[in-house]
Design a protein around this nucleic acid. Structure first.
Lengths: 360, 360
DNA sequence: GTGAAAGCGCTAACAT
DNA sequence: ATGTTAGCGCTTTCAC
C-alpha cells in the first residue's frame, strides 16, 4: 500500500524498494538501468515491488552522477513562424524514439534572447539543435565546445550542420521566372542575421549571371507578413515584375500589400516564396514557392545529435544537404507584355501607396 | 565508448571557487542564492573569482537538494496549430521573467502521447500548464496531485483553470448570424476530447433556444484544414446556410471545400470560425471569427502557476475567464433569399461532392 | 556572518 | 550476479 502520508512526488527512493525487495540499493539501480544487469528473476521481483510502492526513478539524481539528463534542447528562431512546427515535429519524433525529452526554446528572432536561453539551458541538456540560429558563429562555436550541437539551416566549419539545397531552389525559381519571360528579379531580403538569407541572395546573384536575368535586392525586412507588406510599399517605389521573397510569410505580405495598392499578382507582378508553409496554399493567388523538407530537417538534425551524444564524433566535414523542390502555383505568370517601357505600366497608376478601395 | 576529452562543461565547482576566494564552500553557495546571505564585500569577491574561473552553478545538483528545477512544462495539443504559438509566447514571457525555463510538450492531439510525455517530464519540472489537454479529468487530477498544475481552456473542479468566455463568443456569433437572417446554424465539431468543443456546442444550443435559431451538429472532424474539407463534403449532404466551426483551421478548410464544389461563401453559406489565427485574415473571403486573447491566456495561466510554485494555494474556486470578441469579416453575409424552400438552392445543383472545375 | 558536517537519490567503482 | 563504499555538486541544518 503506497505511502499516502508523505507529501507526494518522489518520496519513494531506491532504498525503500531495496528494503522491501530484500536486495541492495545498487541492485535496484541496476535493475532500472538498461541493459538490466540483474538476474532476470530478481529483476522481476524488484520491478514488482517498485510498482507496488509507486517508485519512479529520479532523473535529476541520476543526471547528477551520469551527467546525462536525457533531454535535448531545440532552439528555433520564432515559434510564430509555421515552418518550425514541422521541424519541431520531426525533431520530437526522433528524440522521443531515443527516450529523449525535447526542450523547445523560442529565440524570438533575437540574438540576445537566444544566447541567454541557451546559456541557461545548456547545462541541463545532453545536446542542442540550433535551428536557424541568430547567434554569431563564434557564439555557436562556444556552445558547441560545451555540448554536442547540430546546426540547422546554416553552414559552419567545425560544427555538424544540416542545410537545405537553397541554391538549387533559387536556381529553379529563377529558371521558372525566366521561362515566364521575366528578365529582372527582385529579392526581398529577410533578417540579416539569417544565414539562409545570405545564401538565397547570393544564389540568385549567381543564377542571374548564368541565366542572364538581372537581379537586385531590397530590404532587409522582418520575415513576417507585416514585413512583406512593408516591402510591397518599397516595391512600388522601385517596381518589379518578378519577386523572390525570403520566405512565404513575406511573400504573402507582399501579395497583400500589392493587391491593396491595386497591383495584380500574378498579372503585374509574379511572386515566389520560400518554405511552402500551409498558408501558401490558401492565399489568393496560391503561392509559388520553394518547398523544403521541414520534417526531415528536424529529424535528420536530431538523429545526428543523438549519435553524437552517444559518443559518435560528429560529422563536421561538409554540411548534410537536403533536397528542395519548386512548387508552382498561381502567384507566378508570364510577364505582362509591357510595350517597350522599362517600368511596368502599373507604376504610374498608383505611384504612392494608400488604402485603396476594393476592386469589383 | 569512452569520451575523447572530458566534457569541459561544468568542471568548475563551488569548491574551486571557495578555495580561490578563501572562503568555505557554503559561503560560496550562499553568495549565489538570493537574497545573497553574505557580507556584500565577500560576496563581491566571490562573484569576481567565480567569473574569472568561469564557474556556473549546476542546476541539476541544486535541484537535487532544493527539489526546484526552475523549469515548468507547457503542454499544448498540437504545435502545428497556430493558436498555440501566441499562447506559448505569453507563457514564455512570464516564465522567463520569473527565471523559469519552459519545456514545451507537443501532445499531437493524442491522449496517450500527452500522458506519456507528462509522465516523463513531471518529476523534472516545478509545475505544469496544460493547454487544451486531451487527457481525462482523472488523469489531470492525478498529475495535479504531484505537481502544481494550471489548466488552460478547460474547467475542472479542484484544479486551477483559465478559460475563455466561449459561451459569450458563441452567443455573439449566433446573434450576428441571426441578424443576417439565418435561422439555422450548423456546428462543425472538433475533437471530442477537446473540452471547448463541448462548451461551444452546448453554448450554441442554448443561444439557439433564446434567439429562436435552429441548430444542429455534424462531426467530429479533425481540427485541421483537412478536417474542414471533409466537413464541407458532409455539409453538402446536409446543407446549411450558416456554419459555426470549432476553429479557424476547420473554417478555412470548409470554405475551401465548399468553394471547390461551387458553393459560394458567404453568398450561399456563411462561415464563422474560432480563434482568430493569422490565416483568418488572409484567406478569401476573410474569415469572421471569435477572437480569443491567446497571449493573455498563456501569460495568465503561467503567472498563476508561478504563484502556486512559490507556495500560494492555487485558486480552485471557479475558473478564471478571459473575454473574447467577435471579429466580423467577409465570410458571413445576409442569408441568400431562397424563395420559400427549406433547402438552399445550391444543393440541387451539385448534390454530390466531386472535383469540380474552377469556375471562370 | 561564516564554517563544518550531513545528506538529496542515484550510480560507479571496487569487492565478493 | 550481487553487496559495499564513495561520491556527483550543491544546500542546509547546526554550531561558532
Amino acid at each position: 500500500m503506497p505511502d499516502q502520508t508523505r507529501p507526494p512526488g518522489q518520496r519513494v527512493t531506491i532504498y525503500d524498494v531495496a528494503l522491501e525487495a530484500d536486495v541492495s540499493p545498487s541492485t535496484v539501480s541496476r535493475a532500472f538501468s538498461r541493459p538490466s544487469r540483474v538476474n532476470s528473476e530478481t529483476a522481476e521481483r524488484i520491478r514488482q515491488v517498485a510498482g507496488r510502492l509507486g517508485y519512479r526513478t529520479n532523473p535529476l539524481a541520476r543526471a547528477l552522477t551520469t551527467s546525462r539528463t536525457q533531454m535535448i534542447a531545440l532552439v528555433i528562431a520564432d515559434i510564430t513562424n509555421p515552418v518550425y512546427a514541422e521541424i519541431v515535429r520531426g525533431a520530437q519524433e526522433v528524440a522521443a524514439d531515443g527516450e529523449y525529452t525535447t526542450v523547445l526554446i523560442d529565440a524570438q528572432e533575437s540574438d540576445r534572447l537566444e544566447r541567454a536561453a541557451v546559456e541557461r539551458t545548456m547545462s541541463t541538456v545532453d545536446g542542442i539543435v540550433l535551428a536557424s540560429s541568430r547567434m554569431s558563429d563564434s557564439a555557436i562555436r562556444m556552445v558547441a565546445k560545451q555540448r554536442p550541437v547540430v546546426v540547422l539551416n546554416r553552414a559552419l566549419a567545425d560544427v555538424p550542420c544540416v542545410v537545405t539545397d537553397d541554391p538549387r531552389g533559387v536556381r529553379r525559381a529563377a529558371e521558372h521566372l525566366g521561362e515566364l519571360g521575366h528578365d529582372h528579379i527582385t529579392y526581398v531580403a529577410g533578417p540579416q542575421a539569417s544565414w539562409p538569407n545570405g545564401v538565397r541572395w547570393r544564389s540568385l546573384l549567381e543564377a542571374g549571371m548564368e541565366l542572364e536575368i538581372k537581379v537586385r535586392q531590397i530590404g532587409p525586412f522582418s520575415p513576417t507578413m507585416a514585413g512583406g507588406e512593408r516591402a510591397a510599399q518599397e516595391l512600388c517605389a522601385r517596381p518589379a515584375t518578378a519577386v523572390l521573397a525570403f520566405n512565404d510569410q513575406m511573400a504573402i505580405g507582399i501579395i497583400r500589400g500589392l493587391s491593396r495598392m491595386g497591383v495584380n499578382v500574378p498579372g503585374d507582378v509574379s511572386v515566389v516564396g520560400f518554405d511552402n508553409i500551409l498558408a501558401a496554399d490558401i492565399v489568393t493567388p496560391r503561392l509559388t514557392t520553394v518547398a523544403a523538407p521541414l520534417y526531415a530537417e528536424g529529424s535528420a538534425a536530431t538523429r545526428h545529435l543523438l549519435t553524437m551524444i552517444e559518443g559518435a564524433p560528429g560529422h563536421t566535414g561538409r554540411p548534410m544537404v537536403l533536397p528542395v523542390r519548386l512548387v508552382v502555383r498561381d502567384s507566378t505568370a508570364a510577364r505582362n507584355p509591357s510595350p517597350g517601357r522599362a517600368r511596368p505600366s502599373w507604376v504610374r497608376q498608383r505611384p504612392v501607396p494608400g488604402p485603396a478601395a476594393h476592386l469589383p
